[in-house]
Amino acid sequence: MTNGKKAFGTMIARNGNTIAELTTINGPAMTADTIEMTNHQSSDDFREFIQGLKDAGEIALEGNFITGDSDGQIGLNTDFLNGVVQSFVITFPGNIATWTFSGIVTRIETQAPFDGKLTFMATIKVTGKPTLGISLSTGLTTPFFAISESAVITPDPANDDYTYVATVLTGVSSVTVTPTASAGVITVNGNVVATGEASSAITLGAAGSVTVITIVVTETNKAPKTYTIYLSRAAS
């Protein structure tokens, strides 16, 4: 099952005011310069590089031309004429994530085809570092999760630990996982499990092998939290 989201409903605000009736919001498209560090001791005749300065790129906007959008489209034109640095926020549907940045308007364009609609286009050059904000699901809550068959879990399940190692005795061929969450849908290896209830039996590999177990907690309009458990049977 995919965790992808549709883009419909994405908005961009200029100085706190949503820009009206946009059909396309592209960017930021971040890039980084490279600095060559190749020297006479470089291995295997390959050039070596390190990362140089970063560039946050541009935001390309397109939509219906709305002459009454004084704080949005017309405001962008004012910013262009005055050469000001303005504040912007892109908000994705359901507020699952935002891009917050400062930018200068480098392009304003309108188009009026005889058989089409009036179109507004603008380009914003991001200045400085943009900030990506993500709304995360709450995730697991106390006591987080338990594994049957007296599995030994390292580290102890906790708020901000997302990767675990667990072991069971050689003779154990399957386990169940009991997750706890206060909100959202919980899946264990892709199967929905109610909070505080045991999952269906998870078959383990041969003694000495590792079985990967994933617990995912997903709330509506929030990014999921994923917990990974590497569980092994003691070697015989």
Rank of each mutant, 00 (worst) to 15 (best):
A13M: 11
A13S: 13
R14F: 03
R14A: 04
N15W: 03
G16L: 02
G16H: 07
N17R: 11
N17E: 13
I19Y: 11
L22R: 06
I25V: 11
G27E: 12
P28H: 02
M30Q: 08
T31A: 10
I35W: 14
M37N: 12
N39R: 12
N39G: 06
N39C: 11
H40F: 14
D44Q: 11
D45K: 06
G52F: 06
L53S: 07
K54I: 14
D55R: 08
A56Q: 12
G57Q: 10
L61G: 07
T67Y: 09
T67A: 08
T67R: 08
G68F: 04
D69W: 07
S70F: 15
D71R: 13
D71K: 12
G72P: 14
G72W: 09
I74W: 14
L76A: 15
F80Y: 10
L81E: 15
G83P: 12
S87M: 11
F88M: 11
F92H: 03
G94C: 13
G94F: 08
G94K: 03
A97R: 01
A97Y: 05
T98M: 13
W99S: 14
T100P: 00
S102F: 12
G103P: 04
V105T: 03
T106L: 11
T106M: 08
R107W: 05
T110W: 01
T110L: 01
T110S: 12
Q111Y: 01
Q111M: 01
F114E: 09
F114M: 06
M121I: 04
A122R: 05
A122W: 10
T123E: 09
V126G: 06
T127Q: 10
K129L: 11
T131V: 13
G133Y: 10
G133H: 09
I134T: 11
I134Q: 06
L136F: 11
S137T: 15
T142Y: 08
T142S: 06
T142K: 03
P143D: 07
A151N: 10
A151C: 09
V152W: 06
T154L: 15
T154M: 14
D156C: 01
D156I: 05
D160C: 04
V165S: 09
V165W: 14
V168N: 06
L169A: 10
G171T: 07
G171D: 07
S173H: 06
V175Q: 04
V175T: 03
V177I: 14
P179E: 09
G184K: 08
T187Y: 12
N189R: 01
V192D: 08
A194L: 10
T195E: 10
S199F: 03
A201W: 00
G205R: 04
G205H: 09
A207W: 00
G208R: 13
T211I: 13
I213R: 03
I213K: 02
T218L: 04
T220M: 02
A223K: 00
P224W: 02
Y230F: 07
A234W: 00
S236T: 02
